[in-house]
């Protein structure tokens, strides 16, 4: 059995009678980068706050590292580094002192401050008051703070929000290196698929508080890959025929959609249809981009 670092079952949070998150079943495995996607207000931050014990779930349960969160909160939090929404910092303190304020609580070795500042590339700015930092630098300081306790799990809520393209690239490279170099599992939330598709192994898509997709990125790409659509004289009978020949297809109005775009399958399907007396008017490839698919998944059920 696979060991889940985060496992939620039927997790829900209700605010004033309205569910912000409901029936959420997240499963995040060790060493994965998990992209947690959804539009603004879908419940990403609410979920992350529940995972960190900042807010109490209204229903359901959270298990992390195989233990229930509400019972072993301190020992679980010790293994997690987090950055929730925009970065928190003490503006009047230097970067080093900001990290020292955290270090005094979590008891990390003193040298670790220099190390994490090095990892996020802030060693040169260590002595400056943080209020003079750019947003990107504050964000990196936030990640440094999350890394301070040498966590096994990193929870980052929209870590690239408000960054310029160079900053986004920098953070992305940093996150990608985490599982590789340190064996850290990463949960990263975002409202942009494009942002996580280049680093995530697995994605979960949340819409109006409900998880509507959770699988590997390849599987999402699979779905996004085009299909070949055939317009034939009698789609229904054609489908039955193809089914008999072992070719999977689905009905879409007057069209027949073949799964996949494999040349051999398409040519065989056309051949079978023609041989059986069907008229094939058109065979065209329909392509969906990942982004389109994401928007469709996210857009469903609205309006």
């Amino acid at each position: 059995m696979k060991e889940w670092v985060i496992e939620t079952s039927a997790l829900g949070k209700r605010y004033k009678g309205r569910y912000a998150v409901s029936n959420l079943n997240l499963k995040i495995g060790k060493g994965e980068i998990y992209g947690f996607l959804g539009p603004n207000g879908a419940g990403k931050t609410t979920t992350i706050r529940m995972l960190l014990g900042l807010i109490q779930p209204s229903s359901g349960a959270i298990r992390m590292f195989g233990q229930p969160l509400h019972k072993n909160k301190m020992s679980i939090l010790r293994r997690i580094g987090s950055l929730v929404e925009y970065p928190s910092y003490y503006g009047h303190l230097s970067a080093t002192d900001n990290l020292e304020a955290i270090r005094r609580i979590i008891d990390a070795p003193k040298e670790r401050i220099g190390e994490v500042l090095g990892i996020v590339g802030l060693s040169k700015e260590a002595k400056r008051p943080v209020k003079g930092f750019s947003l990107g630098m504050k964000q990196r300081l936030g990640i440094a703070g999350a890394l301070l306790g040498s966590p096994e799990l990193l929870i980052l809520d929209e870590p690239t929000n408000g960054l310029d393209p160079a900053g986004i690239l920098e953070i992305r490279e940093l996150i990608k290196s985490m599982p590789r170099e340190y064996g850290i599992t990463v949960l990263i939330s975002s409202h942009l698929l494009s942002e996580v598709e280049q680093m995530a192994h697995k994605v979960g898509i949340i819409r109006q508080g409900e998880l509507v997709f959770q699988d590997t990125l390849e599987s999402l790409q699979q779905q996004a890959r085009g299909c070949v659509s055939l317009r034939v004289s009698d789609a229904e009978r054609a489908m039955v025929l193809l089914d008999g020949c072992g070719i999977d297809s689905s009905l879409a109005g007057e069209h027949l959609n073949l799964d996949g775009t494999d040349d051999a399958i398409v040519s065989r399907a056309v051949q079978e249809l023609v041989m059986a007396g069907h008229s094939v008017y058109r065979a065209e490839e329909r392509r969906k981009s990942l982004e389109e698919l994401f928007l469709r998944i996210v857009g469903e059920g609205q309006g």
Binding site: R49, L52, G53, L54, K73, M74, S75, L77, R78, I80, S82, L83, V84, E85, Y86, P87, S88, Y89, Y90, G91, I102, I105, I106, G142, G145, G149
Partner: peptide, 17 residues
């Protein structure tokens, strides 16, 4: 000091009661 940049969320997500 904690309200200013909403540091509560960072502070309370640390392993401290």
């Amino acid at each position: 000091i904690e309200h200013y940049t909403s540091s509560w969320k960072q502070l309370l997500a640390l392993p401290i009661p």
